[in-house]
Simulated scan of single mutants.
Amino acid sequence: MYQKITFMVAACCLLLAVAVGASAPQSVDHSLFDRVLKKYVDEKGMVNYKALKKDPKDLNAYLDLLSKNPPATSWSKNDQLAYWINAYNAYTLRLILDYYPVKSIKDIGSKIQIPFVNTPWAKSFIKIGKETMSLDNIEHGTIRKQFNDPRIHFALVCAAVSCPKLRNEAYVGNRLDAQLNEQGVDFLNDPAKNAISGSRASLSKILDWYGDDFEKSGKTLESWINRYSKTKLTTDTKISYLDYNWNLNEQK
């Protein structure tokens, strides 16, 4: 009798686990964010913050969706990474709107009235599941820690002119590889962000700050640049780094 009851309990637990697994989402639908980006971001990656602040309904609904659906280990790696890139970019938009009008995201640091928090990236205002996070937590504690892909530096946008272009579509797992490659081509061939000639290369400070990320897995920063740049670096190319323009990536 005891064995029969034990078997029935085990069977019920298995059925419940299967049912829960079957009902768990395999990824998040990013179409709401896609709609926001297509409506308020132009082909140059500049944002109409003024209009978005007046109508943040879709953005807020998307952030609520992210908050309630943190990535699961059952998701593909690409679905997880797409989630976190979109989360970083979407919550950056939300942060700007919370303090808008501002001339730069860096101006927000002085406006944060929280002890020991003096940069916008350290402010814990992002609710993902049961965890409260900051933009730093997403970029450094999650993305850079869990995903060995330096191309994320072509996709994360901190609302500055010198950042990579904010893509006016959401990242999605089944197209993520192509999207990140397209971002690499766009970023490395934008002369305002990377001015590369045969003898000289004035590179983005992003490639300086995160150079170590590009040196992993036996690769070099130069090899990554040559993968996407139309003008190739040579052993004789003199490399320097451009000053970073922190002005807001706002449509004029």
Rank of each mutant, 00 (worst) to 15 (best):
T6G: 03
Y91F: 15
G141E: 11
L233I: 12
D58M: 11
V47K: 00
K205F: 03
V18H: 02
G211A: 06
I126N: 09
D212L: 01
K238V: 13
V28R: 02
F147I: 11
Q146T: 13
I108P: 13
M8W: 14
K111N: 14
Y210A: 05
A201Q: 05
P164F: 00
N247G: 14
K205A: 14
L14Y: 10
K216T: 13
I196G: 06
S27Y: 08
S76Y: 01
Q251S: 11
T234D: 09
L176D: 03
G45R: 07
I225F: 06
P25S: 05
M133P: 02
L242Q: 14
P120S: 06
K238H: 10
D149W: 00
M8H: 11
K77Q: 13
G218C: 10
D208W: 08
L32E: 06
L135C: 10
V172W: 01
I85W: 01
K68I: 03
A10M: 14
N86G: 06
Q183N: 10
D55S: 15
I114C: 10
L166I: 09
Y49G: 09
A192T: 11
T142N: 07
F154Q: 01
L16V: 13
F214T: 07
N69S: 11
L37H: 08
L203H: 09
A51F: 08
A72D: 11
K54L: 13
A24Y: 07
I126S: 05
W84Q: 00
M133H: 09
I206V: 13
A192E: 13
Q146W: 02
S67H: 05
I85A: 00
G184F: 01
P25D: 06
W209D: 09
K238Y: 02
L52S: 08
S199V: 04
F214I: 08
